[in-house]
Every structure is written in C-alpha cells, then in structure tokens.
Amino acid sequence: MSENLITPENLVYQKTEAMTDRILHYCPGCGHGTAHRILAEVIEEMGIQEQTIGVAPVGCSVLAYYYFNVDMQEAAHGRAPAVATGIKRVFPDKYVFTYQGDGDLAAIGTAETIHAINRGENILIVFINNGIYGMTGGQMAPTTLQGMKSSTSPFGRDTKTMGSPLKITELIAQLPGAYFVTRQAVHKPANVRKAKKAIKKAMEYQKLNKGTCFVEIVSNCPSNWKMTPVQSNKWMEENMFPFYPLGDIKVPEDK
C-alpha cells in the first residue's frame, strides 16, 4: 500500500468535539471511556452541545465534567437525578442527563433514582453497571453477582446474608414515569453501535416530555475484577450478561 490514504477527504472516524482533549483518568480498557464517547458523539450528531447539561456522579466517573465538552454539574453521591430534576425544571428546553455508576445509582442514590423516575422527570439517566464500587477499591455493590468476589465479599457474595443482586433497571421500568428503558454494553463494535443508537433515541425522546429515559450499560472494571481488560470483557459476557440480559426492557407504547 504505497498510496497515502490519510487525507481529510478519507477521514471516516475521529474523536468527537463534544469531548475535551483531556486524557481520561480511567484504567486501561475501562468501559467508562467508551460510554462517555458514544454519549458525546450523540450530542455532537444532534447538534445540541450548547443545549446539553450533564450531571456527574461520585464514583470513578466523578471527573466526567472534565471530559464532556458541555455544561456539567457535580452532584453529591447518588443525588444526580435530584440535581438533574432541578436543572430540567429551571431549563425545560435543555437536554439534561445524569451519568452514574451502580454504587451511586443503586445503593446510596436509590431513593433519588426511584423518585425522579416515578415523577417521570424528562431526563436521561445513563447507568454504568460494573457490579462493584470501582473508585473506592472494589467493594460489593447492590449489583454484585451471586458468588462474585469483591473486597467486602472475599469469599463471594452469599445471597443468604447479603441479599440478591439488585436488578434496579427492571425495577424502575415498572414505574409509570419511565418512558424508555434499555440495557446495553460497549465492549464490542456491534454493542457500541447499538448502545449509541439507544442513547440517541433516549436523547431524542427527551424532546417529547414523556418521562425518564434510562440506558443501562453493563460494563467492566478490570482493575477491581483483577483481570486484563480483554479477560474482563469475556468474563462480563459469560457472567454479567446471563443475569443482566441486554436489550430493551420498556419501549414507548405510543411509538
């Protein structure tokens, strides 16, 4: 191949301008980066960079405000849906999203999650489920699988004493305020494309003012699962997906 293909006319993919140029602090191979990127790509493609306001959580993605090239607000741990509620009510024409881990959304923030969705707040909630508290050193999360080892369940989660993994996504899908609920992944090209389509749909639905859109992304935590990124993605397919099956959970009835 002698001919140079690297010309502006041939460009088919480059990092979106809806992300800043900061180097992500995430561990190698962590799905957080890919999840950020597809959300940012949707924002760029919809041309809504100036009209979007994001709310960052506490967790590994606490610094998400450094990476999204849109207006961002940090929330206290688990409170992103409450903060997003306030933002959306003051600015009903803006596109408002939260980005939250499973510890943030399904443990300390359970009340905010459920009540914001029950009120049908017109926001997008992006939920990164890696079955663990990544940031703080791999403690058990509500979403940790049965038998899964974590720093606070070193012999594996025993459901007799620790409860069963919480399918918060199926739970919130029951609420009348939930308009569109889906579960996706971002570890393989086909999954990335599907997850991005789901996020785009969810953002577009926000214009309809019909309720909360909720996109779960089942993701990895190679560092705390103590695997290489490639191993962690395989482990996720074999262990997380059977319990957290991918696909739409609630689709709008009027669509």
Partner: peptide, 12 residues
C-alpha cells in the same frame, strides 16, 4: 469505536 480512550482515527 471500541477504544475507551478514543485514540484511533480512521481513514477509508
């Protein structure tokens, strides 16, 4: 599209 760090640019 799978690169978590968005470091790959593609030409066709």
């Amino acid at each position: 599209i799978v690169c978590p760090d968005a470091v790959i640019t593609v030409y066709r």
